[in-house]
Deep mutational scan, measured.
Amino acid sequence: GKKITDLRVIDLKSELKRRNLDITGVKTVLISRLKQAIEEEGGDPDNIEL
């Protein structure tokens, strides 16, 4: 897996889109939004599978 902070903006957006989440904002905003979603799913933001 990869750390969420290692993802490119395009990867962050595709992961957010897959979860029907907002894809607007700067990279730090996208990271925190995706991180929260992954944690709510019970996942580990430091080890995500794309």
Rank of each mutant, 00 (worst) to 15 (best):
G1K: 15
G1S: 14
K2I: 15
K2T: 09
K2F: 06
K2E: 06
K2D: 05
K2A: 07
K3F: 06
K3A: 10
K3H: 07
I4C: 06
I4S: 04
I4T: 03
I4A: 02
T5I: 14
T5P: 06
T5R: 10
T5H: 07
T5F: 11
T5W: 10
D6P: 03
D6V: 03
D6L: 06
D6N: 12
D6Y: 05
D6H: 11
L7E: 07
L7R: 02
L7F: 07
L7V: 01
L7A: 06
R8S: 14
R8A: 11
R8P: 11
R8W: 02
V9K: 03
I10W: 06
I10Y: 07
I10E: 12
I10Q: 06
D11I: 00
L12P: 02
L12V: 07
K13W: 08
K13S: 03
K13H: 12
S14T: 13
S14N: 05
S14L: 14
S14Y: 10
S14R: 10
E15Y: 02
E15P: 00
E15I: 00
E15V: 00
E15S: 06
E15A: 05
L16H: 04
L16F: 00
L16I: 00
L16V: 02
K17V: 11
K17P: 00
K17Q: 15
K17T: 04
R18S: 13
R19C: 00
R19K: 07
R19P: 02
R19V: 00
R19M: 03
N20A: 07
N20K: 12
N20Y: 05
N20W: 06
L21S: 06
D22V: 05
D22R: 06
I23S: 14
T24W: 07
T24P: 01
T24L: 06
T24V: 04
T24K: 15
T24N: 05
G25S: 01
V26W: 06
V26F: 14
K27W: 07
K27I: 04
T28Y: 12
T28C: 15
V29H: 07
V29D: 14
V29M: 14
V29W: 01
V29I: 15
L30R: 03
L30P: 04
I31M: 15
I31V: 12
I31P: 01
I31T: 09
I31C: 11
S32R: 13
S32W: 13
S32I: 04
S32L: 13
S32K: 11
R33P: 02
R33T: 03
K35A: 14
K35Q: 10
Q36I: 07
Q36A: 10
Q36S: 04
Q36V: 09
Q36W: 13
Q36G: 08
Q36K: 15
Q36N: 13
I38K: 02
I38S: 02
I38N: 00
I38Y: 05
I38G: 00
I38M: 09
I38W: 03
I38P: 05
E39D: 10
E39V: 13
E39C: 09
E39Y: 07
E39I: 15
E39Q: 02
E40I: 06
E40K: 11
E40L: 13
E40Y: 06
E41I: 01
E41T: 07
G42A: 07
G42H: 08
G43F: 04
G43I: 05
G43Y: 08
G43S: 08
G43V: 06
D44R: 07
D44A: 06
D44T: 09
D44C: 09
D44E: 05
P45M: 08
P45G: 07
P45Y: 09
P45L: 09
D46Y: 12
D46C: 10
D46F: 11
D46N: 15
D46T: 12
N47T: 08
N47R: 12
N47Y: 09
I48A: 03
I48N: 05
I48K: 02
E49Y: 14
E49R: 11
E49A: 09
L50P: 14
L50N: 12
L50E: 02
L50G: 10
L50F: 10
L50I: 15
